[in-house]
């Protein structure tokens, strides 16, 4: 990657984002409720299958709630820096949902916990 010089203000903002990510991961009460967790899992599964879910598809998952409720839930997951959106270069109408690094870290942590529980159970 080229060593692009940045202004002190840009550097400060980027460092703030990194600090925010670390602060978000500080131990404490989980900020995800069961409904948010279910929606995040559905989105991450589709992303894992390399078929990212669009916002329209996400708000149509009737088993998880009404479109208005799901829309609010997506907004909350974005505010918690667990979901991000992107559009295809040729089509800005469809917005795709993808997990952020923080969401992937969260699932990594869950995976580790399951592994530890499995080892403890086997022992």
């Amino acid at each position: 990657m080229p060593d692009t010089p940045r202004s002190p203000l840009a550097n400060a903002y980027l460092r703030f984002l990194q600090l925010a990510r670390a602060v978000d991961a500080l131990p404490g009460a989980s900020s995800l409720d069961a409904n948010e967790s279910a929606l995040l899992e559905a989105v991450v599964l589709r992303w894992h299958e390399e078929q990212p879910m669009t916002v329209r598809e996400a708000i149509s998952i009737a088993s998880l709630g009404s479109p208005a409720t799901l829309h609010k839930r997506i907004t909350r997951l974005r505010e918690k820096n667990l979901l991000a959106t992107y559009s295809q270069p040729g089509d800005r109408r469809a917005k795709f949902l993808v997990p952020t690094q923080q969401a992937l870290d969260y699932f990594h942590h869950l995976g580790q916990s399951m592994q530890q529980a499995h080892i403890a159970h086997a022992a």
Partner: peptide, 12 residues
């Protein structure tokens, strides 16, 4: 310098 390696543990 860009804090890319900063985790919660490193912060504490």
């Amino acid at each position: 310098s860009d804090l890319q390696k900063l985790s919660a543990v490193t912060l504490l």
